[in-house]
Computed example of a mutant assay.
Amino acid sequence: MNRFTLPALGAALLLALMPGLGQAQAFPDKPITLVVPFAAGTATDQLARAIGTQVTAQAQQPVVIDNKAGASGMIAAQQVAKAAPDGYTVLITTNTTHAANEHLYKKLPYDPVKDFAPITGLGKGGQIMVVNPAFPAKSVAEFVALAKKEPGKYSFGSGSSSSRMAGELLQQMAGIELLHVPYKSNTLAVTDLLGGQIHMMITDSATGLPQIKAGKLRALGVSSAKRSPLAPEVPTISEAGVKGYEMGYWFAAYAPAKTPPVVVKRLNELLAAAAKSEAAKTAFYEPSGTEVFTSSPQELAQFQAAETQKWGRIVKAAGIEAE
């Protein structure tokens, strides 16, 4: 009897010592929720929807998009940090929650490192500086000249840390003083820019380009080191008057901490394949000018650490005190 009982006990002990093994073999066997820290229509939301569609096609399970906008992504990040570590709740986020916020806020309701299991990078992109067509400045140089003439008169809006830091860096490098107006999302800031409530913003291309192409906003410059292939006529901010200026953003996926490594590995496979798919490229990456950026969980952790240090330097140089 012992010859048959001991192997059975050994198998039971193996499963007990390897949490998530049985789960991973069938993962996913129910809907996955992708939590997005920003409003519907933002670049992160568009990316999550493009990725989610492809995950559904691969895994044959529904993917639910849950937009939890507000508090610079902290609401969504906290929700995922507290979620069950089973792989069915994933944060599709940016450098806002996982590199910038810890330098901008004295107390975060989550720990960007300890509370999450990195899955994969998803993309990198540049931003675009836009104004209302009625605004007198038709170039970056003209905007800077106006701002220097009347310090503090002109405002810039932001709905993410990437957008805010782009504006802060512009002030620092151009030697100008602007009034910062915060929003829950870049789309809300664009709405006020269209209505003339603010004067300028530097937003993600996915949000700004449709308004530019429709003639509702005027592009002054792109924040990346090179011109965007989607708007080659728009100069970089560096070549348009603020030499050396460069600011971008990135997307990545995270699960709650303590998610079993085998489940993280499966999520990495699903999300990376989704990002590299032709369908996602057509739906999001090409229209938004975003570069596909996938990684191993370990590579994402290292990348995040380096980015956190970089954003800390920018915040300190801009003289921003944590709120």
Results as ranks from 00 to 15, higher is better:
269 E>D: 08
71 A>W: 05
25 Q>P: 10
44 T>A: 08
138 K>A: 13
204 D>H: 07
99 A>M: 12
105 Y>S: 04
221 G>C: 09
57 A>D: 09
31 P>L: 09
208 G>P: 04
76 A>T: 12
142 E>C: 04
191 T>Y: 13
7 P>F: 12
304 Q>E: 11
129 M>H: 07
146 L>C: 12
21 L>G: 02
91 L>K: 04
223 S>H: 13
73 G>D: 12
319 G>S: 10
305 A>E: 07
260 P>C: 00
290 T>R: 09
304 Q>D: 13
202 I>A: 08
127 Q>K: 13
82 K>F: 06
47 L>W: 14
58 Q>N: 07
47 L>I: 10
308 T>I: 15
21 L>Q: 01
60 Q>A: 08
148 K>Y: 06
17 L>Q: 06
110 Y>V: 00
148 K>H: 11
124 K>Q: 11
263 V>E: 05
155 S>C: 12
276 K>Y: 14
76 A>Y: 06
258 K>R: 08
316 K>R: 01
298 Q>Y: 05
186 N>E: 12
4 F>Y: 12
220 L>W: 06
224 S>E: 09
76 A>M: 01
77 A>D: 06
127 Q>A: 00
246 E>N: 14
170 L>W: 10
297 P>C: 00
273 A>E: 08
128 I>L: 11
92 I>Q: 13
199 H>W: 12
311 W>E: 09
179 L>E: 09
24 A>W: 01
150 E>N: 11
237 I>S: 08
63 V>N: 07
256 P>E: 14
175 G>H: 08
300 L>C: 00
186 N>C: 13
214 A>S: 08
77 A>S: 13
288 S>A: 05
170 L>Y: 07
16 A>M: 10
300 L>M: 05
150 E>D: 11
295 S>D: 10
242 V>A: 02
90 V>G: 04
109 P>V: 01
212 I>W: 04
62 P>D: 09
78 Q>V: 01
255 A>T: 09
308 T>E: 07
98 H>R: 04
211 Q>R: 06
145 A>M: 03
254 Y>L: 00
96 T>Y: 11
241 G>K: 15
41 G>W: 01
203 T>W: 13
173 M>E: 11
309 Q>W: 14
303 F>D: 08
143 F>Y: 15
201 M>H: 10
156 F>R: 03
304 Q>V: 03
201 M>D: 14
181 V>L: 03
251 F>K: 01
230 L>A: 03
235 P>S: 12
17 L>K: 11
11 A>E: 15
211 Q>W: 13
103 H>S: 00
78 Q>R: 05
5 T>Q: 10
66 D>N: 15
318 A>M: 12
52 G>T: 05
229 P>Y: 02
150 E>H: 05
20 G>N: 00
204 D>E: 14
34 L>Q: 02
145 A>R: 04
219 A>Y: 07
19 P>S: 07
84 A>E: 15
149 K>D: 08
314 I>K: 02
196 G>V: 01
266 R>E: 00
20 G>V: 00
12 A>P: 07
108 L>N: 06
310 K>E: 14
196 G>D: 06
38 F>E: 10
75 I>R: 13
295 S>E: 11
28 P>E: 06
43 A>W: 10
295 S>L: 05
69 A>W: 09
5 T>V: 14
166 A>R: 01
193 L>N: 09
23 Q>E: 00
307 E>P: 03
51 I>R: 02
48 A>S: 12
37 P>Y: 05
